[in-house]
Design a protein around this nucleic acid. Structure first.
Lengths: 335, 335
DNA sequence: ATGAAAGCGCTAACAC
DNA sequence: GTGTTAGCGCTTTCAT
């Protein structure tokens, strides 16, 4: 018969293991972990040696059970593949790092159902706080019981009054379209997509308001979600007698699509059609012509959101204000 | 004297709270949480109602203490602001989501000290697994005791034999430089930076080997970390009789810098100088001319790394293999 | 079908 | 300076 193998520790070593091997009590090990006050140098050294040898790391789960913070915040964004949100994540992470905190990342894909599951997953992990860019149609049902602060960024949450940081979408879009008007453009087309997002709606509305106020015709293609739909949208407006003379694009990916389509068609920018986009993008200044845009202060938005979160976690600052950050008109050569 | 306020629950509700209010035992609530088997419909409904009312979510910390997995993996990258790593993070997150797992994100900034602290932080949180792009000079000291699988991506870890997934940096760079040779270029300059990274070194080496084998002069500027250093590096090689006729750029940000500098200087691409870069980038096909590159299969690398990690977490697959994924030569119009 | 109770790894309060 | 112990929120027997 095979001898029963001596039971082998398969999981991570625990404080008790360290205590047993070092021949001390658990309290002593705890003291060593937490700075080593009130422990004799000799004991300290021995315990540290054992910890080292075992590769011991204290379990946050056990500490959490005693009420300690998780030193973790949650971040929910549609996807981290989008440069806007990856830049945001980087900025948020940096602020978190300054507070000794890690970021638990979740991608909602703008799906409120998925978002809700992720909120739940974060609550279960007892994060100390949460930053999210709410999906359209997301509700705060789960959040209202949350024992930690929550701040929204880029978009407000429909039915909740949460601390929120976002760009001045309406004002920024106004500045862009007004600039086109000032330059003398008469037929200004608004091209955009993702109409479910509040941010998009604000930009659409600003275009509409400005052209109306200027007595110009309202021209819009609001279903441009990808290259193909953008292309077909444009085709309806750049031929014939009633072709547009300028385009306001409400999103950087759309701006790039528009640029490509116009290039392919041999349309001169800004000679035949002027172009300005909402949101800056990486090579906007290198294209021919360099593209004029209104730029959101992405890093500042995200950093501010994170700072407000940590403020609330420290019980400083009143909650529930909306911070609107100004966008910047970056004139290059496309209009 | 002010009446002492009734003690109010400040932290998240616990299972015991649900049990007490529902008038059942803790075991019953536990059963309800875990699927509701062996619970009468009546009790089930009541308990669920109380859970709902309280916004109860079970604590993962308490479960972890009983040996349950954290359903969390760690991801350490230099920064998530870099498109390569944000795309990777998105892909890894997607795979993790399929496994009901969240991603704990940490940014090492290529600093081995910071990386070590983050590894420690992840171990303390008892992640089920970890994916990292090791910093140059990082050692596996902490990792050797880790009770969970670890896989590296983009770069191998110097002294450890861990499962690793990366692009064929040497082979890909060879293909790029060989293409330049085949096109008849005679003076091929290699421009790059971040020489501390193994990936960079492989690319440098491939260029050196290919030009040597072709009997061409070895020309390299390996300290191009940003626009300014790239600019001054180029200036040394594009004037005078011994100017270069082609450039191999080892990194996409460098490629963009080179493009800008050549444009500013009025150097025609590929007329006066041919250009090819390692790593594709977003608008490479929209520039004038479109830039030829060797493209890493970023998503496939990250996805594979994540899949291998989950395989190891499920105790499938042997550990410690190195997977090298082929890069793709994308010929556009710059050489 | 349900309750009682032990124990997971740690901290804090207390005893020595 | 150091050991002992209760208890944090769960899961999991074991009775009932």
């Amino acid at each position: 018969m095979i001898r029963a193998r001596k039971k082998v520790k398969v999981s991570a070593p625990a404080l008790a293991d360290v205590a047993r091997i070092a021949g001390v009590g658990s309290g002593t090990v705890s003291r060593v972990i937490n700075g080593g006050k009130n422990v004799s140098p000799k004991t300290l050294a021995k315990v540290r040696a054992v910890m080292q040898e075992l590769g011991y790391e204290p379990s946050f789960a056990a500490r959490a059970l005693k009420g300690a913070p998780s030193n973790t915040i949650g971040l929910i964004v549609p996807t981290v593949a989008d440069p806007f949100f990856s830049s945001s994540a980087a900025a948020i992470q940096e602020v978190a790092g300054l507070h000794g905190t890690l970021v638990l990342l979740a991608a909602s894909e703008n799906d409120p159902r998925k978002e809700e599951q992720e909120v739940s997953a974060l609550i279960r992990r007892r994060v100390d706080g949460m930053i999210l860019a709410p999906s359209p149609g997301s509700s705060r049902t789960l959040l209202q019981h949350a024992a930690f602060p929550v701040v929204c960024f880029d978009r407000p949450m429909a039915d909740a009054s949460l601390t929120t940081v976002l760009a001045d979408n309406y004002g920024g879009a106004r500045v862009a379209v007004e600039h086109l008007v000032d330059r003398g453009y008469k037929r200004i087309l608004c091209v955009g997509g993702y109409g479910g997002l509040l941010t998009s709606q604000k930009r659409f509305q600003a275009h509409k308001d400005v052209v109306r106020e200027a007595g110009l015709p309202y021209l819009a293609e609001l279903g441009a979600e990808d290259f193909v739909s953008t292309q077909s949208a444009l085709l309806r407006h750049i031929r014939g007698a009633d072709r547009v003379d300028a385009i306001f694009s409400t999103k950087n990916t759309t701006t790039v699509c528009i640029y490509k389509v116009l290039k392919e068609l041999g349309v001169r920018i800004p000679g035949q059609i002027g172009l300005i986009g909402f949101d800056d993008f990486d090579l906007a200044d290198v294209l021919d012509p360099p593209i004029s845009v209104v730029r959101q202060p992405i890093t500042r938005i995200a950093t501010r959101a994170a700072e407000l979160l940590f403020d609330e976690m420290d019980h400083r600052k009143p909650a529930s204000a909306i911070t609107t950050l100004d966008v910047e008109l970056v004139l290059r050569g496309s209009c």
